[in-house]
Computed example of a mutant assay.
Amino acid sequence: MKIILTHEVSGLGAAGDVVDVKDGYARNYLIPRGFAMRWTKGGEKDVEQIRRGRKIREIATIEQANSVKAQLESVKVRLATRSGDSGRLFGSVTPADIASAIKQAGGPDVDKRRIELGAPIKTLGAHQVSVRLHAEVAAKVGVEVVAA
């Protein structure tokens, strides 16, 4: 099935790319979650608008990405959340929570879609998350989850 990506999907492409994927992957995962839309001749017009929006949000050069990476890795991020007595969280920490915590800690503004969690964060303590800044540059950010 031919689809147009509306968000960046790891291992598949960036927003505005037209890609071919298996029908089930598109119908059951990408389209319902809003990561893609079906390709049509009319939808081809939307591709240019999506690409313009991506270009505005995107970090253009590797030098810019490296400077943002240095800022991110120097920031100490603490995230206060509700937890039980055993150190288990009520719910989990989302990329949006991490993006706002980075901003509150004095770091640069980070798009939540660029934050990659290896596994869901459901316990108190120190965790590492990856922030994709550029195709070739990713920053490792330490996040300390504490009880609120």
Rank of each mutant, 00 (worst) to 15 (best):
M1L: 12
I4L: 12
E8N: 14
E8A: 11
S10A: 13
A14V: 12
A14Q: 07
G16P: 04
G16C: 07
D17V: 02
V18I: 15
K22L: 12
D23K: 01
D23Y: 03
D23N: 04
D23R: 01
G24H: 05
A26K: 01
A26D: 11
R27T: 12
N28Y: 07
N28Q: 08
L30G: 11
I31G: 05
R33Q: 15
G34M: 04
G34I: 10
G34W: 02
M37T: 13
W39T: 03
K41N: 11
K45A: 15
D46K: 02
E48W: 00
Q49K: 10
Q49E: 13
R51P: 05
R51E: 14
R52F: 11
R52N: 13
G53M: 09
R54M: 12
I56M: 10
E58S: 14
I59C: 10
T61A: 06
T61L: 06
T61Y: 07
S74R: 01
V75G: 02
K76H: 14
V77N: 03
R78D: 11
L79M: 04
A80S: 08
T81E: 08
S83A: 15
S86E: 15
S86A: 15
G87Y: 03
R88Y: 08
R88H: 12
R88D: 08
R88S: 10
F90K: 00
G91D: 10
S92F: 11
P95F: 07
I98N: 06
I98K: 00
S100A: 14
G106A: 07
D109H: 03
D111W: 00
R113E: 13
I115Y: 03
L117I: 11
G118N: 08
A119Q: 14
A119S: 15
I121F: 07
I121W: 03
K122Q: 12
T123F: 13
G125Q: 05
A126I: 14
H127M: 04
V129Q: 02
H134L: 11
V137K: 00
V137W: 07
A138T: 14
A138N: 08
K140W: 08
K140S: 14
V141P: 04
G142S: 12
V145I: 15
V146D: 03
A148L: 08
